[in-house]
């Protein structure tokens, strides 16, 4: 067998492999497409959002009115979880502008996280039950 034949056969095999791969891809897409459409990312996020609203609604109605100020302290602190976005913007470093904005966002959010949790802890520490006797 001369080298030219070998090369030709190899190229034919490669061609077949490519066709097979394409067929496989088409098949896969045909099967996956409906599934992907059902799990539209936005609808998925919206579902989570609405369910979380309901969880929040029921949990917060259970908060005793005496602790409404600490409730604001805690919600204020946890809403600063927006720091996650700031960290990604700064840490991945795709653009200088994003890094600068991310840096300041992280700083502001950190004021809130530490400030919010600490002031809430101070408030809660003051709520004492009645002394016996």
């Amino acid at each position: 067998m001369n080298p030219t034949d070998l090369a030709n056969q190899a190229s034919a095999q490669a061609q077949r492999a490519l066709e097979l791969a394409q067929q496989a891809r088409l098949l896969a897409e045909a099967h996956v497409a409906p599934v992907a459409a059902a799990a539209d990312p936005f609808l998925f996020l919206l579902t989570i959002f609405l369910l979380a609203c309901f969880v929040g609604y029921y949990v917060v109605w259970n908060v005793t009115p005496a602790l409404h100020s600490p409730l604001m302290g805690v919600t204020n602190a946890i809403s600063s979880v927006i720091v996650v976005g700031a960290i990604l913007a700064t840490g991945l470093g795709e653009s200088l502008a994003a890094q600068v904005f991310g840096f300041f966002a992280a700083m502001l959010a950190a004021v809130n996280i530490f400030g919010g949790f600490i002031v809430t802890r101070r408030m809660l520490a003051m709520f004492q039950p009645k002394k016996r006797g």
């Binding site: 989570i48 959002f49 979380a52 929040g56 409730l71 919600t75 809403s79 979880v81 927006i82 976005g85």
Partner: peptide, 12 residues
């Protein structure tokens, strides 16, 4: 996480 927390705080 941002969506869930935002919803909790918003509802509160």
């Amino acid at each position: 996480l941002l969506i869930v927390t935002g919803a909790l705080v918003g509802a509160s």
